[in-house]
Design a protein around this nucleic acid. Structure first.
Length: 376
RNA sequence: GGGGGGAUUCCCGAGUGGCCAAAGGGAGCAGACUGUAAAUCUGUUGCGCAAUGCUUCGGAAGUUCGAAUCUUCCUCCCCCCA
């Protein structure tokens, strides 16, 4: 396939008859990415606790970086001098950079928003920095990711209809400005906002779609809203995004979330859960999530997940990993992160196979029956 | 042999008449985590379902309405001088 950014980066290779799921490929300069895909989050030019070799070994072709964090440290100019983020971090796969829109939400106490953009106070040294759509495009261009995200405002949950409307309007204006100033040879994705309001979501989905980005994202979820709200938002929004372009649900989610939203027609996901939970001692297993630090694992000399064939489960026991946590050893975070990312990859592989054989709903039921069996 | 200091709940360590089941930290136990200010954060930790309940501050005996806190004796530990 001839790659001509910014259009035509996506091809659909199979569609599900029973659901809205599809199999596809996203073409980027550094990798062809099979979808549905889960992208590990590597905010600061590292997927915490993993080496790039391990990410390859785990089968990841694309990871996230964060514009705001990398701009503050080490600085986008330095990354440019290093000949881009790929070279800087020695990652041969694709990279998607988030724009800093999420930091508008998460660094609530450290920023101020107006029409021009956002003024952030650095959490590192307190200095002030201004992000405008044009500035973000410049920074993302310097960082050099394969896919770059438009600068958006992610309103907190809950926000009033009035405020959400204003934030969504700003996001729309900024999307237009991002498109106008986007660096060449990058796939710029637009982001739908609209909070938990159906009318705003529909308006935003239609507006962002009309800008004809090579891919479209749904933002403003996984900000603390109830699961039901998240489902509503995806249900309202997804069908309005062009089917022939990749759909990216930002910040989601749990393994079950991913299955559910693939069913809705989402192609791309990213989430800190497998890595953060891993560092905090929470491990995914076929039979539910466990806290490996619990006393009941002290004498458990079996693998974390009996049905997992990852390098960690083949070699190490629950008791050993628990010990590493209790002793505050750095290997604990590494083993757990590796295992959790492998778990996500297993789920994604099963999802793809199930789409190909049109048995995604059956897979969902099977996954759920085992996954919740451990919790009862 | 003489002088001085000390012993507190699993550990370290505050507390010097009632507001003390006793600060704070550690360790333990449990929970949370969804475009990462996170190897972070929260709760809990004498017994008891609870009570104006019971047991606890090296041991014993006192003083007092009331003692971890005051007195006497005992045991053990540390420092200094011989």
């Amino acid at each position: 396939m001839n790659i001509e950014y910014p259009q035509n980066i996506f091809e659909i290779t199979a569609t599900s008859k029973e659901t809205s799921a599809r199999l596809g490929k996203v073409h980027t300069p550094h990798a062809v990415i099979d979808t549905p895909v889960f992208m590990p989050v590597g905010t600061q030019a590292t997927v915490k606790a993993m080496t790039q070799e391990e990410l390859c070994e785990l089968g990841f072709k694309i990871i996230l970086g964060n514009t705001y964090h990398l701009y503050l440290r080490p600085g986008h100019e330095l990354i440019k001098r290093a000949d881009g983020l790929h070279k800087f971090m020695s990652w041969d796969g694709a990279i998607l950079t988030d724009s800093g829109g999420y930091q508008v939400f998460s660094l609530n106490d450290l920023r101020r928003i107006d029409e021009a953009g956002v003024t952030f106070k650095s959490y590192i040294d307190g200095s002030s920095h201004e992000f405008s759509p044009e500035r973000v495009m410049e920074i993302e261009g310097a960082i050099g990711a394969d896919i770059i995200m438009a600068f958006d405002e992610c309103p907190p949950y809950p926000s009033t209809h009035q405020y959400t409307k204003e934030a969504t309007q700003r996001t729309h204006d900024w999307a237009v400005r991002c498109k106008a100033s986007a660096p060449a040879n990058r796939a710029l994705f637009g982001i739908v906002q609209g909070g938990l309001y159906r009318d705003l979501r529909e308006w935003s989905a239609e507006f962002i779609s009309s800008l004809d980005f090579p891919g479209n994202a749904i933002g403003g979820v996984s900000v603390g809203e109830p699961k039901e709200e998240m489902h509503n938002i995806v249900e309202w929004t997804t069908p309005l995004l062009p089917a022939y372009k990749p759909r990216y649900l930002m910040g989601v989610g749990t393994p079950l979330d991913i299955i559910d939203f693939v069913i809705q027609g989402i192609d791309m996901f990213d989430c800190v859960l497998p890595t953060r939970l891993g560092r905090n001692g929470s491990l995914y297993t076929t039979y539910g999530r466990i806290n490996i630090k619990n006393a009941k694992y002290a004498d458990d000399f079996t693998p974390v997940d009996p049905e997992c064939d990852c390098a960690v489960c083949r070699k190490y026991t629950s008791a050993y990993i628990r010990h590493l946590y209790k002793a505050d050893e750095i290997l604990a975070a590494r083993l757990a992160t590796y295992h959790n990312l492998y778990f996500y990859q297993r789920v994604i592989r099963r999802i793809r196979a199930a789409i190909a054989s049109d048995s995604l709903l059956a897979y969902r039921a099977e996954f759920l029956s085992k996954y919740t069996a451990g919790e009862a």
